[in-house]
Structures are given as structure tokens and as C-alpha cells.
Nucleic acid binder design. Structure first.
Length: 648
RNA sequence: GCCGCAGUAGCUCAGUGGUAGAGCGCACCCUUGGUAAGGGUGAGGUCGGGAGUUCAAUCCUCCCCUGCGGCACCA
């Protein structure tokens, strides 16, 4: 038998027979390591303890102390144990796939009856039982045909389909947890007893399409979360509870910012407090855009279908558009119009008026464009995904040569704004050519590279999403995260050489001939609605002072101070601070509590002492202590703080 | 759009085949209180909408709407 040399993390090497498994290596080191081992790293690859090693390699044996690997295995085995529990409880339920995800795993099942919340409890109990059996996990590589026949005989058609999709070069690996069997690429734990039985929880059941395809059967997905110990689970559940308190829908109600109601699904009724946030942001963005070399325009809401046909929206996007037909009885001519879902065709109309020269490029045309899209009902989500929204949209008409510098400039523009708004943590995704696309490979090569280099030159990393680009061009997505870790695309930059073609936009080049400009669609915040949602969740409602809708409440401690309260409010308002008086017949404790819950950044309390020396008692949100400041000092201080970052 | 769950007072929620309850909030009164809920009294509901079963429906059945969690979608 051939010998191989295995090198351990401490640098020592030893010889073993080729085909030795990590389990045997561990046993060779010590009995206790053999018991504690969960998997191995062999030349950097996460390796099952049972897989044979056939060549010289670097090896490390993992135990539960190797947290990343342990979590991966625990969750993966828990997914299998869950599937086993389901099949033990309800024989005949078909199994499909069950991957590890953030914080846990899911497994998709095909079963006629829906799983109920009570079922989850039963499954959890059965899982604990299986874990306690400490069933060994074993594995074999099977011939493809044998595996297919096996699954056909067991009435598991989804598994057959999975095997058929595995490339011929890959082994078909079967795993057993005791007598229960599943197709799996591994690796896995030694036995089910290595799963901590008190550190997982089944969270919810949801529908999910087989292979993510809405034309295929709807399966039932059970989600679980799992950790290495009870504390890990507890921490996660606490995090979810805390996240619930940051939910913008809840804070929107508590802070009296907006509401939604069933007569206008997906559209927002902005209350005074919410609208102050909106207009403050919009004013700020308008200044940024002016400074950034944009011109602002405004275009119609309701536009004849002819223009949408020309732009291609009628064909490609109609099912997402609100179509407006004028009643024939009331109109001399019946026309079919659509509410604009995007601003681009309108902007091209403005570009097209008069002849443009290369000297006009790049032309940066901005609009706070109010759009309506008929989003699928299931996609609606608070104010983050709505049917009526306003983009801080702009289209940059430029030459292909200018794409890179415009992109770079835009990223810097966006980064500054995100920083001003308190976001340091965001990421860029580059979506590249999709399967269905127009244009030549060479064109795609050029524009994708231009976006990528622009990012690099601007000093930003990006994640590539292969095939996720628009059919007309690649795009950059600027992604922010909500309270429970869901990603939302906010900013975007998309290259579009196509619309100028369709809508016949031209400029006269240096050569005196007509040329087509390239269009960059770009948005910084994305939509005010979504961005405000993220902003609320990011700050848990405690918005930066300059954006806070109610910046200061001046509260009287005794009613004899009421007159001075009004004087303080007036002084603040005169300096541009959003201040309100609270002279209600309530104790100061009550007022402090109420305005703290309402996330008012500053409470100024006024009693007789303050009246006498013309001062106020200052209490900042989140701080327990207070201090007394002379009126004119605090007015200066808050007036300075109320300025937007770009005006300081 | 698909799967599942839910909809009772402004909010959070309890409840019953015989037309409804709590806490908070709101109004009024007492209280003038020094930094996260002082006390009392009172008003407030077509029980999401429609149809059906029943002597009788908020409750049971069906359809629809909206919301929530996922999936799909997201120019």
C-alpha cells in the first residue's frame, strides 16, 4: 500500500497509508480527539471524517471549538435530522433539499397537508429524540444509476431530479443518519448526538417553489435556527426581539410618521412628522445634486401608451404598470395612458428638444420622480416596497468614454451622502450580463469593465452577481440592510445604450455627425420611501437631530412656567429648530417618558428655577443625566445642530 | 402572483352560536408635581367586506379584500 505524508498544523508530518480517513488519523493521535472530532480540513477543504485521503496533504482535525466549521456541520446535520423527523412522523412526505443558511437551515418538503405551528413542536420533539439516539452518520459513493433506481423505488422524484442535475464528474454521495438516508455532498458530523439538542428551534413554515421556479410545484419549507449552545440560541432570539422593536412599520406608528390603509395598498399616507423627514431629506438631496452638477427637471405622471411602446416598456413592463383609460363618455377621444413607472423616457424627451452637442455632455438630468408600479401583492412591505414612490432619480447622458469617470464620480457622491446620513456599512453589487440580452459581447465586456474599474478606482470592493444585470446593460447596486439583516437595494447605477436608440436621442459629435449618447440611470437614495424605512431601522427611530421630525419638546414642570415655555419654543423656532411646547397638566415624569418613547432627541424642562434665571434643563434622548443651560446658549447650540451636515 | 397564518375600540390583545371585554391612549375633573406612567370619572366597536347554514352568526362554511412570514418578482 502506498504511503502518504500528512502535515499537521504544528508543522509535524507523519506517514499514513493512502486512503486513510481523518477519523483514523484522529484516533491515531488520541482517543479523546477521536471522540471530539467533527470534521477535518484537508488542504483547506472541509472534509468529512470518513472520506479517504489519497495524497500528501496538510490536515487539521476540527472539534466543536472550531466554531465556523462546527456551526456549518451542526446546522447541516440538523437539517437532515429534521427531514428524518418529518418522515418518521409522516411517512410518504417527499424530501427535496435542505441547505445551511445564515443562523440555521431550511428543508423543503412535498406534502399535501400543510404543516401547522403545532406540527413544528412535534417535529422539534422528534428531532431531540433522534439526537439522543446518537445514530452514527455513515457515507458511501454510489453509481449514478443505482442511486436513481433507489430513489425511484422509494418514490422520491425530487432526489432523482437532483441526481440527474449533478455533473458527471462529481461523485453521487449517499449519507445515512442511522437507518435514514439522504443524498448529500457532505461533510457531516460523526453521529447525531453531536448536535446540541438545546440550541436549536424551528421558526416558521413558508411556501417555496421547487428549484426556485414559479412554474414548478410549491413546496413547504421549514426554517430552523441552530447554534452551538443554549446561549447562542438565546442571543439570537433576543436579537430578533430587539429587531422587532426597530421595525419601521412599528416605529412609523409609534412616532406618528405615516400609515397605510387598504383602499390604497402599497401607497403611503404621510403624517406631518413623517413628511418632515421626507422634505428634510429632499431639501438636502436637492442641494447635493445642485452641487454635483445636476440640473433638475419634472415630467408628467400620465403619459400616452405610444411613448411607452416606443420606449419598450409597453412590451417588457406592462404588467407592472397602472394603465389609465379615460371613460369614453367623458372624453371625445379615448386614449390609453399609463402612470409612469420610471422617469427615463420623460428625460429623453427633454434631452431631445433642441440639438445637443458633445459639449453638452455629460448632461446630468435629475428629477424627484414620482413613480407608480403595480408590484405583485406579495412583494409589498411597509414603506420599503410600495406601489407609489419617489425616486431621487437622474439620467446622465454621456459618451461611452465618460462612463468610467461618471461612475467614479457618482460613487463618491453617494458615499458622501450615505456617510452624512449615518451609513458607514453598505456594499456594492455588480450585476453582469444576463442570458437574455441585447448588444455584442465586446460591448458588454467594455461596459462591465468600466463599472468594475470605476469601483476599484474609487476604492470600493464589489460583489459580482453573475447574470443579474438588466437586458440592456450591467448595473451597480448599492445595498443597505434592515433591522433583521435583509438586504435592500437603495442606490443604483445602470448603463443603458439602448433607450437612446429606441427614443432616438442624438448629439452632434466633434466630427459634425450625429451620435447616440449612452444613458446612465442612477439613484442615490433609490426611493425616499425605502430609504426612510431603512433610515428608521438603522437608527431604531432615534434619527440624527437634523432629520428628526420633532427635534425639541419644551415641557413645563409647573403651569406657572408656561409663558416661559412658549418663549423658549419661539426662540428655537426663530433659529430654525423644530420645537414644540408641552404644557399639559401632567407630571414631568410622564412628559419625559412620553417624549422619550416618541424618540424626541431633546427635552427641555422648565420649572420656576429656570424661569427665574432664564435657563432650561436639558435632557438628551438616551441619556439619564440632565444639565441646566442658559436659554441663549442652548438656542445657539441646538440651532447649529439642526443644520444639515452640508450646511454646517 | 404562489404557500401558510392573521384581521375584535386609536394601539396591544382577551372572548362567546343568543348583537362584546381589559390595559394603554383619548375627553373631563382633582392634583402644580423636578426628569421614563399621580388619582377619579367618562366617551369610544356595523367584531375587515359579501354571501350561505341557522330561530339566531363576531363565532360555523364559502368567496373577496388587506396585513404578516417566506417563495417568485424587483428596468
Amino acid at each position: 500500500m502506498a504511503q502518504i505524508s500528512l502535515t499537521f498544523p504544528d508543522g509535524n508530518s507523519r506517514h499514513f497509508e493512502a486512503g486513510v480517513t481523518p477519523a483514523e488519523v484522529a484516533a491515531d493521535i488520541s482517543n479523546s480527539l477521536a471522540k471530539k472530532a467533527i470534521s477535518a480540513a484537508v488542504n483547506g477543504r472541509h472534509y468529512d471524517l470518513q472520506w479517504p485521503i489519497t495524497e500528501d496533504a496538510e490536515i487539521a482535525i476540527h472539534t466543536m471549538k472550531d466554531e465556523a466549521q462546527a456551526l456549518e456541520l451542526v446546522r447541516h446535520d440538523a437539517a437532515h435530522v429534521m427531514a428524518r423527523a418529518v418522515q418518521e412522523l409522516w411517512p410518504g412526505v417527499k424530501v427535496t433539499i435542505g441547505p445551511v443558511i445564515d443562523n440555521g437551515w431550511y428543508y423543503d418538503f412535498d406534502r399535501d397537508e400543510p404543516f401547522t405551528p403545532e406540527d413544528l413542536g412535534a417535529i422539534e420533539a422528534k428531532m431531540k429524540e433522534i439526537i439522543n439516539r446518537r445514530d452514527p452518520v455513515t457515507t458511501e459513493v454510489w453509481e449514478r444509476d443505482r442511486a436513481i433506481k433507489y430513489y425511484e423505488a422509494n418514490n422520491e422524484p425530487y432526489k432523482v431530479e437532483l441526481i440527474e442535475a449533478i455533473p458527471g464528474t462529481e461523485p453521487i454521495r449517499m449519507y445515512w443518519h442511522g437507518h435514514w438516508q439522504d443524498l448529500c455532498r457532505g461533510p457531516h458530523l460523526q453521529h447525531t448526538g453531536q448536535i446540541p439538542a438545546d440550541a436549536f428551534k424551528l421558526m416558521k413554515v413558508a411556501g417555496a417553489y421547487w428549484r426556485g421556479d414559479s412554474n414548478r410545484p410549491m413546496l413547504q419549507r421549514i426554517y430552523g435556527v441552530g447554534f452551538l449552545n443554549r446561549d447562542g440560541l438565546k442571543q439570537h432570539l433576543t436579537f430578533l426581539e430587539e429587531a422587532e422593536k426597530r421595525d419601521h412599520r412599528r416605529l412609523g406608528r409609534e412616532m406618528d410618521l405615516f400609515h397605510l390603509q387598504e383602499e390604497a395598498p402599497g401607497q403611503i399616507f404621510w403624517h406631518p412628522n413623517g413628511w418632515r423627514i421626507y422634505t428634510t431629506l429632499q431639501d438636502y438631496m436637492r442641494r447635493q445634486q445642485e452641487a454635483g452638477g445636476y440640473v433638475e427637471v419634472n415630467t408628467p405622471q400620465v403619459i400616452d401608451r405610444k411613448l411607452w411602446e416606443a420606449s419598450g416598456h409597453w412590451e417588457k413592463y406592462q404588467e407592472n404598470m397602472f394603465i389609465v383609460e379615460v371613460d369614453e363618455e367623458h372624453a371625445r377621444e379615448k386614449t390609453v395612458n399609463a402612470l409612469k413607472p420610471m422617469n427615463c423616457p420623460g428625460h429623453v424627451q427633454i434631452f431631445n428638444v433642441g440639438l445637443k452637442s458633445y459639449r453638452d455632455l455629460p448632461l446630468r438630468m435629475a428629477e424627484f420622480g414620482s413613480c407608480n408600479r403595480y408590484e405583485p401583492s406579495g412583494a409589498l412591505h411597509g414603506i420599503m416596497r410600495v406601489r407609489g414612490f419617489t425616486q431621487d432619480d437622474a439620467h446622465i447622458f454621456c459618451t461611452e468614454d465618460q462612463i468610467e469617470s461618471e461612475t467614479k464620480q457618482f460613487i463618491a457622491f453617494l458615499a458622501k451622502i450615505y456617510a452624512d446620513l449615518g451609513f458607514e456599512d453598505w456594499k456594492i453589487k455588480l450585476s453582469t450580463r444576463p442570458e437574455k440580452r441585447i448588444g455584442t459581447e465586446a460591448e458588454w465586456d467594455r461596459v462591465e469593465a468600466a463599472l468594475g474599474t470605476a469601483c476599484n478606482h474609487a476604492g470600493y470592493e464589489f460583489e459580482v452577481q453573475e447574470g443579474e444585470g438588466a437586458f440592456y446593460g450591467p448595473k451597480l447596486e448599492f445595498v443597505l440592510t434592515d433591522a433583521i439583516g435583509r438586504d435592500w437595494q437603495c442606490g443604483t447605477l445602470q448603463v443603458d445604450p439602448f433607450l437612446p436608440e429606441r427614443l432616438d436621442a442624438n448629439y452632434i459629435g466633434v466630427d459634425g455627425a450625429k451620435h447616440k449618447p449612452v444613458m446612465l440611470h442612477r439613484a442615490t437614495l433609490g426611493s425616499f420611501e425605502r430609504f426612510i424605512g431603512i433610515l428608521i431601522e438603522e437608527h431604531a427611530g432615534k434619527l440624527p437631530f437634523w432629520i428628526a421630525p420633532r427635534q425639541v419638546v419644551v415641557a413645563s414642570i409647573v403651569s406657572d412656567a408656561d409663558a416661559f415655555v412658549h418663549e423658549v419654543v419661539a426662540a428655537l423656532r426663530a433659529r430654525g429648530v423644530r420645537a414644540e411646547a408641552d404644557i399639559r397638566n401632567e407630571k414631568i415624569n410622564y412628559k419625559v417618558r412620553e417624549h422619550s418613547v416618541g424618540k424626541v432627541p431633546v427635552i427641555l424642562a422648565v420649572g420656576m428655577k429656570e424661569v427665574e434665571d432664564r435657563s432650561v434643563s436639558v435632557r438628551r434622548l438616551g441619556e439619564k443625566h440632565t444639565h441646566v443651560a442658559p436659554l441663549d446658549v442652548i438656542v445657539d447650540e441646538l440651532a447649529a445642530e439642526a443644520l444639515a451636515p452640508d450646511l454646517r
